[in-house]
Amino acid sequence: MKKLKNDGTAVNSALLRRPIQRWFPLFLLPTVVAFIIGFVYPFFQGIYLSFCKFTTTSDAAFNGISNYLNALKDATFVHAFWYTALYAVVSLLIINILAFLIAYVLTQGIKGSNLFRTVFFMPNLIGGIVLGYIWSMIFDGILSRYGTSILLETKYGFWGLIILMCWQQIGYMMIIYIAGLQAVPEDLIEAAKIDGATKWQTLIHVTIPNVMPSITICTFLTLTNGFKLFDQNLALTGGQPFSFMADGTIVKTTEMLALNIYNTFYGQSASARGVAQAKAVLFFILVAVISLIQLKTTKEKEVQQ
């Protein structure tokens, strides 16, 4: 083996490397501790609390799986689940299709592309609650001309939220798609052109397979964002309109899962806090499973460059 010339200053010198190898746990410690305090402990505490009856988290009494049974029996939770699922799917499709289209157009060398990119990205910088209230005024400004309001029809609330989230998220996804599109090798596209492929064929068979990693990320983000949506939902409709079922259940027709959990926790008596916690754990499992499935299916379609 050739002996390396070592004057003790090279980055890979044994003098530098050995202490790092020996002491790396010490350097990792702050991060690990922060991770445990901020993530690991609360996560398991949360799971534990879902099996408890409690008013404050430090003072909980174990009560088995009854919280889970109550959560699953809760018609509002079931409604919120299906409503959220519908919302997530619709917003996933619309946001990604539009974001991709805009990204595609803005990578065609149009004048002022940078300006457009900046403008489209900007809605992301506004907080969800503020957006919700602003858009509720915009929608009502229009709907009040027809003697109605976004709070009065479930479909207005649904599409209102879709429009709001499209407005907010398309710019963000667009940036990711632009990065992906710019990374598609020129020579591949040129080769396709020489082979006589039309623009459409180039897009479908060359460009899209090559931006699959971006599509994976964007669908992942929009899907999880859709499921976790809270601020905008709270500010735009807060669950209105309600529908009053024959058995006395009150279903907040535009209430999504996260808001349902929040309302269960704070809107009801202490006995419901464990139920809200159980809902939150179910919610976690649900989102985790769905995103894993989504990641797996989209990643299978990625091509290696």
Binding site: F43, G46, T224, K228, A288, S291
Partner: peptide, 21 residues
């Protein structure tokens, strides 16, 4: 990459769970 994505998802999700406190 997948592992990192899942990790980040858990992290963001967790932020959701813990938001009450």
């Amino acid at each position: 990459l997948a592992l990192m994505l899942v990790g980040s998802m858990c992290a963001t999700l967790f932020a959701g769970c813990g938001s009450t406190s």
